[in-house]
Simulated assay, not measured.
Amino acid sequence: MVDQSLPTIDYRSVHAPQAIAHSLQDSGFAILSHSPIDHPLIERTYRDWLAFFLSEDKVQYRFDPKVQAGYFPLQTETAKGYTTPDLKEFFHIYEGHSLPQGMSQATWDLFNQLRHLATELLEWIEAQAPPHIHANFTEPLDAMIADSKETLFRLLHYPPLPDTIPPGAVRAAAHEDINLITLLPAATGMGLELLDSEGQWQSVTCDRGDIVVNVGDMLQLASQGFYRSTTHRVVNPDGPARHQSRLSMPLFLHPRPEVVLAEGKTARQYLQERLQEIGLV
Rank of each mutant, 00 (worst) to 15 (best):
residue 58 K to Q: 11
residue 171 R to E: 02
residue 40 P to L: 10
residue 169 A to L: 10
residue 113 Q to V: 02
residue 48 D to N: 12
residue 93 I to L: 12
residue 87 L to I: 05
residue 129 A to H: 11
residue 67 V to T: 15
residue 34 H to V: 00
residue 126 E to F: 09
residue 147 D to M: 03
residue 136 N to A: 15
residue 26 D to C: 08
residue 95 E to C: 12
residue 126 E to G: 06
residue 118 A to D: 03
residue 84 T to G: 04
residue 37 I to H: 12
residue 74 L to F: 12
residue 62 R to S: 12
residue 83 T to W: 10
residue 56 E to L: 06
residue 162 P to G: 05
residue 51 A to Q: 14
residue 138 T to P: 00
residue 45 T to L: 03
residue 154 R to Q: 11
residue 90 F to K: 05
residue 80 K to L: 07
residue 97 H to A: 02
residue 94 Y to W: 06
residue 168 G to P: 08
residue 123 E to L: 11
residue 128 Q to A: 13
residue 56 E to P: 04
residue 36 P to C: 07
residue 143 A to Q: 14
residue 116 H to I: 11
residue 93 I to S: 01
residue 153 F to Y: 15
residue 45 T to N: 14
residue 134 H to W: 05
residue 42 I to S: 07
residue 59 V to P: 00
residue 57 D to I: 10
residue 134 H to G: 00
residue 158 Y to H: 08
residue 128 Q to D: 09
residue 133 I to H: 03
residue 162 P to W: 08
residue 150 E to M: 12
residue 153 F to L: 14
residue 169 A to W: 02
residue 143 A to P: 00
residue 31 I to T: 11
residue 140 P to A: 01
residue 120 E to P: 06
residue 96 G to M: 06
residue 109 D to M: 10
residue 81 G to W: 13
residue 99 L to T: 12
residue 102 G to A: 04
residue 155 L to C: 11
residue 71 Y to C: 03
residue 83 T to K: 14
residue 84 T to S: 03
residue 168 G to M: 08
residue 118 A to M: 03
residue 162 P to D: 04
residue 50 L to P: 07
residue 50 L to A: 02
residue 128 Q to C: 15
residue 67 V to P: 00
residue 135 A to E: 11
residue 66 K to H: 10
residue 92 H to W: 00
residue 118 A to Y: 05
residue 109 D to T: 12
residue 91 F to M: 06
residue 73 P to H: 12
residue 79 A to K: 01
residue 72 F to L: 13
residue 117 L to S: 06
residue 73 P to D: 03
residue 60 Q to N: 15
residue 30 A to R: 04
residue 81 G to D: 08
residue 48 D to Y: 09
residue 98 S to Y: 01
residue 163 D to P: 07
residue 59 V to I: 13
residue 55 S to P: 08
residue 32 L to C: 05
residue 39 H to C: 09
residue 82 Y to R: 12
residue 115 R to P: 00
residue 155 L to M: 14
residue 165 I to W: 03
residue 127 A to K: 13
residue 62 R to D: 07
residue 90 F to Q: 08
residue 88 K to D: 06
residue 127 A to L: 11
residue 44 R to M: 09
residue 105 Q to W: 02
